[in-house]
Design a protein around this nucleic acid. Structure first.
Length: 418
DNA sequence: TCTGGGGTCCTAGGACCC
DNA sequence: TCTGGGGTCCTAGGACCC
């Protein structure tokens, strides 16, 4: 048996945890730079507010309905996510954290594990609410895809109230009949459009298709989805989190950039973040991609990306910063209003198996980076940095409606007034 | 004026090998 | 008229996820 537990509009619910005064109000959360709406609480959803709508287009509507607007507070969400995952993890031996707000649970000997799955789902919901004040939806199914479908039913379909179970033909069809094919996990916009052209509109219709035929038309990925909908488990999960195969850091700017020195500050800062991330997973980068672009909504879209290969794979912030300097002039173009930039490690190697250069003695000094990481871990990121990251705040993202970091900054700890 | 930031997997086609 | 038959590795692009 598989379980899937995730939070109801996680970011919006997280905003309500330490601010009970907004719990009964409509709340939305914005993406970086307060660009689009990325989370809508259930009360706001009833007003018909759509996800991923640009904020400036809907601002007057939100004002009119007294909707509470918040910027993304990732520090807060990451901490609340940890707490939530800890509570959920107690209900199962084997938990796979799939994203910031959802985790799969695996039950091997499930007949002996749980007698009543509905009851068990409600126990999970109650515990998470009691200990974190976050509402969650719980779905159980005999495959991962069916547990996703059950989770969808638990949160979106009437009559389920937060918990749904798929463990026989009747309750499977009860859910799949009421699910659009586009709500099936693994069926995105393109494929659902093609399926609908063939008259396949519901999840049940997709489940009734021949897997071989689906593979011929689409791919092995979609074939697996069809099998999973029929209770045949095809997706495997590693209990151990494998290291990332690519690591990126990228942001849009708070305001447009036309100055090469500021672009350099931003790119070196992203390089530094990537270096820290890959050190944390014991990787080194062999190929680095460095890119910058104007906005895709501009009349003349400008984009430049350069791949910088390292002779010997590295995880030193200094090496990555040097790479940025090497390509900066090829990326920058006079007169372009830069909207976004970033750095990505697109080819990674394991720290333990590094091929050194036969002719060049190694310059590697791991102690320097260890020292950097230790200081920044203890005193906060950005305490110690390379000089070329700059101190110019001009390019930083804007977060005009940011809530306090209640749990990760001493200055923001909630105060109780007597 | 203003539009997010990460990731994964699969496939097709080309280069190259014997 | 008629141009082999396997392989591997790499890359770009497309699809999906949150």
């Amino acid at each position: 048996m598989f379980g899937l537990v995730d939070a109801v509009s996680f970011y919006a619910s997280a905003e309500k945890v330490f601010d009970p005064s907004i719990r009964n109000k409509p709340v939305v959360v914005l993406t970086n730079n307060d660009g689009c709406i990325c989370a809508v609480c259930p009360i706001a959803r009833r007003l018909g507010i759509p996800k991923f709508k640009p904020y400036f287009q809907i601002k007057s509507f939100l004002d009119k309905h007294n909707v509470v607007v918040r910027s993304s507070n990732y520090e807060l969400y990451a901490d609340l996510s940890d707490r939530m995952m800890n509570v959920i993890g107690r209900f199962c031996d084997n938990q796979y954290i799939y994203s910031i707000d959802e985790s799969f649970l695996f039950f091997d000997n499930y007949q002996s594990y749980v007698k009543d799955w509905h009851e068990y789902g409600h126990q999970i919901r109650k515990a998470v609410w009691k200990e974190t004040r976050l509402p969650v939806g719980v779905g159980f199914g005999v495959t991962s895809t069916l547990s996703k479908a059950a989770n969808h039913a638990a949160k979106k379909l009437s009559g389920y109230n937060g918990v749904a179970v798929i463990n026989n033909k009747n309750n499977r069809l009860a859910v799949l009949n009421r699910m659009s094919v586009s709500d099936v996990w693994g069926i995105g916009g393109k494929i659902s459009q093609r399926l609908k052209q063939q008259g396949i509109n519901t999840a049940t219709q997709l489940a009734n298709e021949s897997p071989k035929n689906i593979r011929k038309q689409f791919s092995v990925v979609t074939e697996r989805t069809v099998n999973e909908l029929n209770g045949v488990s095809c997706l495997s999960w590693d209990s151990v989190r494998s290291p990332k195969k690519e690591v990126f850091s990228t942001r849009s700017f708070g305001q447009r950039i036309t100055d090469i020195t500021i672009l350099r500050f931003a790119l070196v800062t992203h390089a530094s973040i990537v270096a820290r991330k890959i050190r944390r997973q014991s990787s080194r980068v062999k190929k680095l991609m460095i890119f910058a672009s104007s906005s895709p909504h501009d009349n003349l879209y400008y984009k430049q990306a350069i791949i910088y290969p390292f002779t010997v794979a590295t995880n030193s912030t200094c090496d990555l910063a040097n790479a940025v300097d090497c390509v900066l002039h090829s990326i920058f173009s006079q007169g372009v209003r830069f909207y976004r930039c970033g750095v990505g490690a697109i080819e990674l190697e394991n720290d333990a198996f590094i091929q050194p250069d036969l002719f060049m003695p190694t310059q590697d000094n791991p102690k320097l980076m260890q020292c950097l990481d230790k200081i920044n871990y203890r005193y906060g990121d950005g305490t110690l940095k390379v000089a070329s990251e700059g101190h110019n705040e001009k390019w930083q993202m804007s977060r005009g409606f940011l809530s306090p970091q209640y749990t990760s900054q001493w200055r923001d700890i909630p105060k109780i007034q007597c």
